[in-house]
């Protein structure tokens, strides 16, 4: 008997896994659910599903869910209405979206910054991983584009956020890496230089919406050259990032 029950359990688990792969079925709990022709607030409502009826959730694009009703009609429903429907367990559908509360407590951040490095234009992509709310490791790769030279740098550093609960969060950063400077061909007697670099900086990041943040920073760099004097550069950048 117990063996039979265990077999039943296995079959049930397998069936449940298959059912999930086919999409989620939810029951309308609001007075009605509006289905639009497209995933946007401007698209017309072409179908209304009443309370108690069920719809099949096919997929999601940004804040919109594509659903099929019991009569086989397709349409797009907004997240606000979707979160009021009931899943088979009888509770409201839990849409686990990043929000203002998650900003600061997030683990990963990826972004793009544009600005000026010592008179050259700079395009930077970076990724960060937070060990806790205050401290994160950050890897940045940049393309430097100047009138007289081009170059790249790759840096690894740490950032410290003193107040991760604020909507606008200042931060401090230090790090090190390598920089490669390639003078333009029109100049004579110069060579490609690869040097170690270290930086210290301050910046600010602010929550915009969803998983979107805006970020600006200022850094002081020291390039450890093999000449008599080290080179010092300043950099400012602004851009946007996602957290997840």
């Amino acid at each position: 008997m117990a063996r039979l029950a265990a077999c039943g359990l296995l079959i049930f688990l397998a069936a449940a896994a298959t059912a999930r792969a086919q999409g989620l079925e939810v029951t309308v709990a609001d007075p009605y659910l509006e289905m639009r022709t497209g995933p946007g607030r401007g698209y017309p409502v072409v179908n209304v599903v009443e309370r108690g009826e069920r719809v099949q959730v096919e997929k999601r694009r940004t804040d919109w869910f594509q659903v099929i009703d019991e009569n086989g009609r397709e349409g797009w429903v907004h997240k606000g209405q979707m979160s009021e429907t009931l899943v088979p367990a009888g509770v409201k559908m839990d849409i686990d979206d990043p929000s203002r509360e998650d900003f600061g407590a997030h683990r990963r951040e990826v972004g793009l910054l544009v600005g000026d490095y010592g008179g050259s234009n700079v395009v930077t992509a970076y990724g960060a991983y937070a060990f806790n709310e205050h401290l994160a490791a950050e890897l940045a790769v940049a393309h430097l584009l100047g009138n007289f030279s081009d170059g790249q740098y790759l840096t690894l550093g740490v950032t410290h956020v003193p107040r991760p609960d604020w909507r606008i969060q200042p931060f401090l950063s230090i790090g090190t890496g390598v920089i490669r400077i390639e003078p333009k061909g029109t100049l004579v007697g110069t060579e490609v230089r690869t040097d170690q670099v270290a930086y210290a900086g301050v910046g600010v990041r602010a929550y915009l919406a969803r998983r979107f943040i805006i970020r600006g920073e200022y850094k002081e760099y020291v390039v450890f050259t093999d000449r008599d004097e080290n080179e010092e550069d300043t950099e400012w950048k602004i851009g946007f990032a996602f957290f997840f």
Binding site: R20, E58, I95
Partner: peptide, 13 residues
Amino acid sequence: RREVKPAKIDTEN
């Protein structure tokens, strides 16, 4: 208490 996990819905962003 039943633990309700967020549904796996195919996102196409």
